[in-house]
């Protein structure tokens, strides 16, 4: 499925602020595997997602999706196989376009866009049906600009847009972090439902340890640009926050420090 081999990425190379954000990171995902990614600020988890999505070129290493080497592909080309949801709800939708136009844009992911009508009549049925599953009443607001929606509604819409055309890989970059706890819970439920239903291979970055432990079949922890823990199977199912903290200090010989990760 996804195979990243020896990814190295340094920002501000040669400058005073040089940061090695990814230091020889390798990770493989099996088909349909749901992996949660955790780590403190600056650990490299979001950078890794960016490297996979092609937001920037990597310095070293190769990235394969379904055995196709896409290391040299630009972001828009990789999008054919990758669905993404960002942390900022404003980033996932077009505020000036209507809900149905946003969905129509998502329906064409990975396909050439021509001079056919942007929103087709027969697609509206599909949009209504899909929006109804969110339970937010958006199916009756197809022609409202997405900019009128609340953060939670927008994030739910972004989630739907990311999977409207089934992606080979779903990348979720702290997509509930900017929402209030109740809305975050709803968007998370929706995420789990869609991922399970469609059997999506998923990488979900989160700051929240409980989320990382409670969801998915595998947990990966980043620290200082490296993957320091990779927990799966039986061990993942029985994992508790204390275990995770202990495992971390065993591996690194230091305490895990991230208030945000521990308190949420």
């Amino acid at each position: 499925m996804l195979r990243a081999e020896g990814i190295v990425k340094t920002f501000f190379k040669g400058g005073a602020n040089e940061v090695r954000a990814l230091n020889n990171v390798s990770l493989s995902l099996a088909e349909g595997e749901f992996v949660t990614v955790i780590g403190s600020n600056g650990a490299g988890k979001s950078t890794f997602l960016g490297a996979v999505a092609g937001v920037f070129p990597v310095d070293q290493g190769r990235i394969f999706l379904n055995n196709e080497d896409m290391t040299a592909w630009p972001e828009w080309q990789r999008a054919a196989g990758i669905g993404r949801v960002f942390q900022d709800p404003a980033q996932g939708t077009c505020p000036g376009a209507t809900i149905e136009q946003n969905l129509a844009l998502a329906l064409k992911r990975g396909q050439p866009r021509g001079l056919g009508p942007g929103v087709r009549r027969q697609d509206r049925e599909l949009f209504r049906e899909q929006l109804a599953r969110l339970g937010l009443g958006l199916e009756n607001r197809l022609r409202d600009p997405a900019g009128l929606l609340s953060g939670g509604q927008r994030q739910a819409l972004s989630m739907l847009m990311a999977v409207l055309v089934k992606p080979r890989l779903l990348l979720l970059d702290e997509h509930t972090a900017a929402l209030d706890p109740k809305t975050a819970g709803q968007v998370l439920d929706l995420t789990v439902r869609l991922v399970e239903e469609l059997g999506l291979s998923t990488l979900m970055v989160t700051h929240n340890m409980r989320q990382a432990i409670g969801l998915g079949q595998r947990l990966v922890m980043f620290h200082r640009g490296e993957i320091v823990l990779d927990i799966r199977g039986e061990e993942k199912r029985n994992l508790r926050v204390e275990d995770l903290l202990q495992r971390f200090s065993e591996v690194r010989g230091e305490e895990f420090t991230s208030d945000r990760a521990l308190l949420t």
Partner: peptide, 27 residues
């Protein structure tokens, strides 16, 4: 034109380039 597939992609390029790149458009 602005209501065609390509036209919508153009609107989105101005409105939210990051999103439309993630949806496969060469901005």
């Amino acid at each position: 034109f602005l209501r065609t597939e390509l036209g919508l992609a153009l609107l989105a390029t101005g409105d939210n380039p990051r999103m439309i790149r993630a949806l496969g458009v060469n901005t």
